[in-house]
């Protein structure tokens, strides 16, 4: 416990933080997370972090959109029109969400290319790579399910042809397609299904896998692109 010399707001804040930390002990965890070192020659170009930034932006704008969006064929389109025309800055929130979705996928791919070119996926980082692949799939799932939600012509027909791709899988293709659509065609069932996946299943999945991805990176530190996986083994 620190010695409090005077009752200034700063000291009161310090006292409060100390009181909380004595009970939850978070300070050690934060110190352990931040006070690590990275190789000077590691050039990540900040691509993974930028992908994380877009995800956070998607979460914020997505929650705001969900306050006005109604997931049914009768009202989805009208609710998006309402967001665009009536809600204060609604057009901006929706546009940031749409651009953010595309940019998140772009930076996901760039991040992956960086990791491949620098050979950062090699042992002992295989699990980090697998978690990254899972994150890519979740991100693509976000894009695919989110695209249907405005329920306009582009959304409807993009989903129709998009679900044709798994429909071409041998033997189980038509089963997969009908499972995704919730029937033979894209319908009200598809919309509520995609909405539920987009709003609940994928965010929860992404949060879990992302924590694993970041935790393993923290445990191992960044790969040094200038050094081989096991020094001397290649010589």
């Amino acid at each position: 416990m620190r010695v409090i010399r005077s009752w200034t707001p700063m000291h009161l804040a310090q006292l409060t933080l100390d009181w909380i930390d004595e009970r939850i002990g978070l300070r050690g965890l934060i110190t352990a997370s931040l006070h690590v070192t990275i190789p000077r020659s590691a050039h990540t170009y900040y691509l993974g972090g930028i992908t994380l930034f877009f995800f956070m932006s998607q979460a914020v704008t997505g929650i705001l959109l969900s306050l006005y969006y109604r997931a049914s064929p009768e009202s989805a389109y009208d609710s998006v029109l309402f967001i665009m025309n009536q809600v204060n800055f609604g057009w901006l929130i929706r546009s940031v969400h749409a651009w953010g979705a595309n940019l998140m996928i772009v930076f996901c791919i760039l991040h992956m290319l960086r990791v491949v070119v620098q050979g950062a996926y090699k042992a002992p980082r295989e699990v980090t790579w697998l978690a990254g692949i899972a994150l890519l799939f979740v991100t693509l799932g976000f894009g695919f399910t989110g695209y249907l939600l405005p329920w306009d012509q582009r959304a409807y027909w993009a989903t129709t042809v998009g679900t044709e791709i798994p429909g071409a899988v041998p033997f189980i293709g038509s089963f997969l397609r009908d499972l995704m659509r919730g029937g033979a065609d894209v319908s009200a069932v598809t919309l509520t299904r995609f909405f539920g996946i987009h709003m609940l299943v994928l965010p929860a999945s992404l949060a879990g896998v992302l924590m694993a991805h970041l935790f393993i990176i923290h445990q191992q530190g960044l790969a040094d692109p200038k050094e081989d996986e096991t020094k001397g083994a290649a010589k």
């Binding site: 057009w91 901006l92 695209y147 306009d152």
Partner: peptide, 27 residues
């Protein structure tokens, strides 16, 4: 977002197939 806001086409119509149907660019 400010220069190119997200667009919105006509409401979905299962009986009116548009001329050029495409999935999202990443698919």
């Amino acid at each position: 977002s400010a220069l190119f806001p997200a667009g919105l086409e006509e409401q979905a119509d299962a009986f009116k197939t548009p001329a050029h149907v495409k999935p999202e660019w990443y698919f």
